[in-house]
Amino acid sequence: MADTLSKLQDVFRDVFEDDDLVISRATTAAQVSAWDSVMHVTLMMAAERAFKLRFKSGEVTGLKNVGELVDLIDRRLGG
């Protein structure tokens, strides 16, 4: 889980072009500047690429925070 969060942090930094960005399980879209609905799609696709998996649209629209995204990735990776 810690690995997932750490890898996800790299994805966030890449997508939001911010090398100082630090995320935690409690981070929400409201706390990250520019994390709007359009960037959300880009972020999810970048995460798909990084973790080599495919999300369903129903999975990525209901996420409340980074923690739920980490759990989703771990679940999909069978972790």
Partner: peptide
């Protein structure tokens, strides 16, 4: 429409993109 079109497997597999080996974001 947009979200299902982004993440639907059938759209991803059915509408392929010329000259690209993999789907990029």
């Amino acid at each position: 429409v947009y979200m299902p079109a982004c993440f639907s497997d059938s759209v991803r597999d059915w509408v392929t993109i010329p000259f690209t080996g993999e789907w990029s974001p």
